[in-house]
Amino acid sequence: MSIMALTPPPIPRDGPLLRVDRLRQWFSSGGFMSPRLTVRAVEDVTFEIGRGEILGLVGESGSGKSTLGRAVLRVTDLTDGRVVFDGQDVSTLSKRQLRPLRARMQMIFQDPFASLNPRMTVGQIVGAPLRIQNPGISRSEVEARVGDALRTVGLADSHAERYPHEFSGGQRQRIGIARAFVLAPDFLVADEPVSALDVSIQAQVVNLLMEIKRKLDLTILFISHDLAVVGHVCDRVAVMYLGRIVEIADTRTLFRNPRHPYTEALFSAVPVADPSRRRQRILLKGDLPSPLAPPSGCAFRTRCRYAIPACAEAVPPLAHIGGGHQKACIRDDLALQPAC
């Protein structure tokens, strides 16, 4: 496939492709006249992604998944902590210094309507990465490579002249995927790439993504709140709650043997397409607390059905419990429901 021919294969190196070390991403608002408010959107997050691995990132809306995804791509200036990409510390690189790295890390967005410029043709959208990264590139080469990319994602060359509004949500998502892959990156953050799509189309897009992943030997941070899709796609899964990772394990272990009450509740909430299996679900009470004023101690304790007074005392550390499985809960005596 032509995408393969675009860049020489990356020189294999040792170690994980991405290492994130005690990352913090805070947002401040107010100041000056009004009281200064700080949202700790990502707080003290540490993890690694191996080469060719897909790490799932799940959690409720507002738990900080997108913020984390953007932070590791250095869209934002980090508040604290380190991001090491392929052995290189990128935490403090400037926009200009990051530029050559941009070709190696890309992103797919959730909203197929907001992520494509409505005034550009599909050809211009998919060609933009080529033009930005190699300003001297010839028109014919851009056209050829855009055509290749469009065919790879199941569209036709002729679609290059059309505008985004002429496509359905699923097709737009394919256009977004073509834009992310036209530079043949090594690392991809897929931020809820199928959440806005119908189930039938969801499957098409997931399969396409996985096909391209195999071809390019990609490493992916796969953000989703659909645990079923995550179970099918990911090698490992990290569960986030209010800006922190509360559990991380390989997919099988997490599904068969969840050790954090929040993970159990997430699994329990997934609807199952079998009316005879209407279960008694573990309903989480209420909403995610405001990240402006998270509860003291374990942030989940306000909704946790296993909470005990000790949970309010200190933030439980993300502790190793063997086999790469880590969890942030002080109780070891719980028998939690597995997903399957």
Binding site: R70, L73, V75, K95, L98, R99, P100, R102, A103, M105, Q106, M107, F109, Q110, D111, A114, S115, L116, N117, P118, R119, M120, A128, P129, I132, Q133, G176, R179, L183
Partner: peptide, 24 residues
């Protein structure tokens, strides 16, 4: 998101302003 996408590609402020934002 489409502006973020351009910035993700390493586009300069001038590119984003003239090519992505101005036509809109």
């Amino acid at each position: 998101d489409f502006i973020l996408a351009a910035e993700m590609l390493g586009a300069s402020g001038r590119y984003v302003m003239t090519r992505e934002l101005l036509p809109n």
